[in-house]
């Protein structure tokens, strides 16, 4: 299921200048794509457009050929997961277990299936010991792993992470990178925004560079 942008352009409501112009990119499942570029070039805006938080001015975003403009945020969220730069802003449950289970209940899954997935993802992201912990008391790296667990448990097709390496030390960065490789192997499409050249080189299959709101090579499909 391809995620693609077609002639995407965006201007913030209060702004007069276009932030993104003629963006044409294709993302594939089982691939890690890194979006990079200078501060304010439109990286986060692009990711927010990809998940439907912002609606494009012109152009469209298609998931499996369907325009996401016709989908609600909840429908998009089932296919494309998004982890904010500050994962604490996405945590609203009172235990780690509940946080992972929240989306699963919305999917209408049975009790056994929910329990199974919670245990699996707690184990996968080494969070089992924090099962009953208040999520906001976790460290930055743990919160990030929790959010990855909470969104991946819903089995989306794509995971988008906005600056996931912010505030992580070298060891935690490596752990995060290894998790990304694991989920890529499981068939998820991963898109992350980063400035960390080393991290991008180590884990990304493809680098998309944005300069002044445009793709630097004019194409978003290069290897």
């Amino acid at each position: 299921m391809l995620l693609e942008t077609q002639d995407l352009a965006y201007t913030y409501p209060a702004g007069k200048q276009e932030i993104l112009h003629e963006i044409n990119i294709r993302f594939r499942p089982g691939e890690i794509a890194a979006i990079t570029g200078d501060n304010g070039c439109g990286k986060t805006t692009l990711t927010k457009l990809l998940v439907g938080i912002l609606r494009p001015g012109t152009g469209r975003i298609c998931l499996g050929g369907n325009d996401i403009a016709a989908m609600s945020l909840a429908e998009i969220g089932r296919q494309i997961a998004y982890v904010f730069q500050n994962p604490a802003q996405q945590i609203f449950c009172t235990s780690v277990e509940q946080e992972i289970g929240y989306g699963l209940k919305n999917l209408g899954l049975g009790r056994n299936e929910i329990e199974q997935r919670i245990s699996h993802y707690l184990d996968y992201f080494e969070l089992s010991e924090y099962r009953q912990t208040f999520p906001l008391s976790l460290s930055q790296g743990e919160k990030q792993r929790l959010m990855l667990a909470a969104v991946l448990a819903m089995h989306p097709r794509y995971v988008i992470l906005d600056e996931p390496t912010t505030g992580l030390d070298i060891y935690r960065r490596k752990l995060l990178g290894d998790y990304l490789l694991r989920i890529k192997k499981d068939g998820y499409g991963v898109i992350f925004v980063s400035h960390q050249v080393k991290f991008i080189k180590a884990y990304a299959d493809r680098v998309i560079r944005i300069e002044d709101g445009r793709l630097s090579d004019g194409r978003g499909d290069c290897g």
């Binding site: 909840a74 089932r78 998004y82 802003q89 996405q90 906001l136 969104v151 819903m154």
Partner: peptide, 30 residues
Amino acid sequence: VYYAVQMRGTELQKISARLKIKLYTRMLLP
């Protein structure tokens, strides 16, 4: 937080007023 809740599968337009209030209270946490 409002977007995050919806992206985790909550159809805010379709849930009851009671659930909505409960959810908005939860959203105050972060």
